[in-house]
């Protein structure tokens, strides 16, 4: 808030010295972003409304109207991918937030080795997505992977085919992605926890609330304005997951891990059907925006409830 007010003040101070200079400073960034985002985004609209031929060279064959969209909305593959995407997105948010919240509560205490735990929790974030994909391929390997090895070490059969069975494969990808996003979510939630005033918790304790009730009725409601932005971030990333799926399963077995984003890739760069890919990409964007709008509405309500 104060930052906003101060910014306005300086804008006044410096504005006398030139709008033109300001535009010059912003121009390169805006031009590049416009060239690499706005131009392609508009061109993709044209693609989605066209019949496109890529061989021998790229050309738009004819204006196809809404055919590409209608075909997608009428295709079983599209809806299959949509449900997979939604399930994957919601599960990623749910599992990551719950686990990270637990870790954040832990890191909010004082104990020996807290610094070490903090660094360790942060580490998966530093692993490039492709590297983390390869690493999880190794974990999930059916014959000599570490997970099955671990299960055998504890006396189990340890013969789970992690990436080759439809339902399990989607959840294997989920595990790998949750592991990658825990660092971000944990640090974000921890920062939020540190803002929750200690005095409020102490007051609750004096009023006779146990630690569980303090968590449930004091900490959680106060944390909602932090939990929801994390959920929004995670959801947006879940909608864009590519590297992990590409390395782990290539969208398979069959189409079990083909999310909408991966469907766009398959249509565009495996089948070279740019028209369908463009239409799917826009439908995915609509889905993402709708989901964010829903979460944003919850955020506004939560802020109001928290009295912030």
């Amino acid at each position: 808030m104060t930052g906003e007010v101060r910014a306005e003040k300086t804008i006044r101070t410096v504005s006398r010295r030139g709008r033109r200079a300001a535009i010059a400073l912003v121009a390169p960034a805006v031009l590049i972003v416009a060239g690499v985002y706005a131009y392609p985004a508009i061109t993709t609209v044209a693609y989605s409304l066209s019949d496109i031929d890529l061989s021998p060279r790229f050309r738009i064959v004819r204006f196809a109207g809404l055919d590409n969209f209608i075909n997608q909305l009428g295709s079983g593959k599209f809806w299959e991918a949509t449900w997979i995407t939604l399930y994957f997105g919601l599960m990623l948010c749910l599992v990551t937030v719950v686990v990270s919240f637990g870790i954040a509560l832990l890191l909010n205490k004082t104990f020996l080795g807290r610094g070490l735990l903090r660094v360790t929790v942060l580490l998966p974030w530093a692993v490039p997505p492709v590297a983390s994909g390869v690493l999880w391929v190794q974990m999930f390997h059916a014959e000599f992977g570490f997970l099955n090895g671990l299960i055998r070490a504890f006396g189990g059969a340890g013969d789970i085919i992690w990436l080759g069975r439809q339902t399990i494969a989607l959840h294997s990808v989920l595990i790998a992605e949750v592991w990658r996003w825990i660092p971000f979510a944990t640090i974000f939630l921890l920062a939020g926890l540190q803002i929750v005033p200690r005095t409020v918790k102490e007051a609750a304790a004096i009023d006779g609330a146990g630690s569980w009730r303090t968590l449930r009725h004091v900490t959680l409601p106060l944390m909602l304005p932090v939990v929801i932005p994390v959920t929004i971030f995670l959801f947006v990333w879940a909608m864009k997951v590519f590297d992990t799926i590409f390395v782990l399963t290539r969208g398979g077995p069959s189409r079990a891990t083909t999310t909408l984003n991966f469907l766009v890739y398959r249509q565009g760069f495996e089948q070279f059907d740019f028209g369908s890919a463009a239409a799917t990409a826009y439908l995915l964007s609509v889905l993402t925006v709708l989901a964010i709008a829903g979460l944003g509405w919850m955020l506004v309500r939560a802020r109001r409830l928290a009295g912030a």
Partner: peptide, 9 residues
Amino acid sequence: VLPTLLFVM
């Protein structure tokens, strides 16, 4: 918010 693949084609 938008998928990267949207811009990539």
